[in-house]
């Protein structure tokens, strides 16, 4: 991880700088084969390798690789406001996003990418939706509600929330055992595999071969399972 950020700083010193403002951004769309780094800094700026296009329309920022680029292209964006207005982060293609210590208001993450997304020290994540084959990691979430809608890929989250809503389908794998939730509502189907840690209430609506592992004894359990689906209580 440290090596990655060392690379980001070396990128700042050596590459092209886009003439775009990065404050007040509410949405970031990443397409193609971009490796995007988002971070807070005293001065808002970007630094990118050749072969990437950065456009801002209103409060939306679009970052994509141009046609000449076949290899992953690295882009670092620094915002003075720590992306305080960021609400939507959409990641497509084979792009990846790495972010540390940004302060979005209430962030919705969507990915159909085969790349990876890592959000560390990002607390206000409200929703993660994954349709791509890639992986998503997010720590430490302290939103009141967290919604995970995962139909593909691997997702791992950590933090503390009041209510956790998890929808798993396809062959998705979701490890939310790092999230201490007061209540967890789970809907799981197909071959999805989910891990959860709820203290007060857990409800599972399961079908087909979906499997949910519960890592803490919730006071109240409502388990409605059909076919080969199951809720397994694992002592954590």
């Amino acid at each position: 991880m440290k090596l990655r950020w060392i690379f980001v700083y070396s990128l700042v010193m050596s590459s092209v700088v886009a003439n775009v403002s990065f404050e007040g951004i509410s949405q970031v769309d990443v397409k193609g084969a971009v490796q995007l780094y988002l971070q807070k800094q005293d001065r808002s700026m970007s630094s990118e390798q050749l072969g990437v296009v950065i456009d801002r329309v209103g409060s939306k920022l679009m970052i994509k690789t141009d046609f000449s680029s076949n290899k992953p292209v690295k882009v670092a964006i620094f915002a003075k406001d720590a992306f305080a207005n960021l609400q939507h982060l959409n990641v497509h293609g084979s792009s990846s996003v790495y972010s540390s210590n940004i302060k979005p208001g209430s962030l919705h993450v969507y990915s159909d990418s085969s790349g990876s997304i890592q959000l560390t020290q990002v607390s206000n994540v409200a929703r993660i939706e994954s349709e791509g084959s890639g992986s998503i990691e997010a720590y430490w979430i302290t939103s009141p509600h967290l919604e995970l809608v995962i139909s593909n890929g691997k997702v791992k989250v950590g933090g503390q929330v009041q209510r956790l809503f998890m929808t798993g389908s396809g062959k998705s794998k979701v490890d939310a055992s790092g999230v201490v939730a007061e209540s967890a509502w789970i809907s799981a189907k197909d071959e999805s595999f989910l891990k959860v840690r709820a203290t007060n209430f857990i409800s599972m609506e399961g079908s087909q071969d979906a499997l949910v592992e519960s890592y803490r004894d919730a006071k109240f359990v409502n388990e409605v399972t059909r076919d080969g689906s199951a809720l397994i209580h694992v002592r954590g």
Binding site: H145, E147, R163, F165, S183, W185, S187, N200, F201, S203, E205, K219, F220, N222, V224
Partner: peptide, 22 residues
């Protein structure tokens, strides 16, 4: 009261699993 809250959640979770926005 705690049991009632949990029962309300079980019913609400059924509606949510059927597609009602939480």
């Amino acid at each position: 009261k705690k049991l009632s809250e949990a029962q309300a959640q079980s019913v609400a979770a059924f509606f949510w699993a059927k597609g009602v926005d939480m």
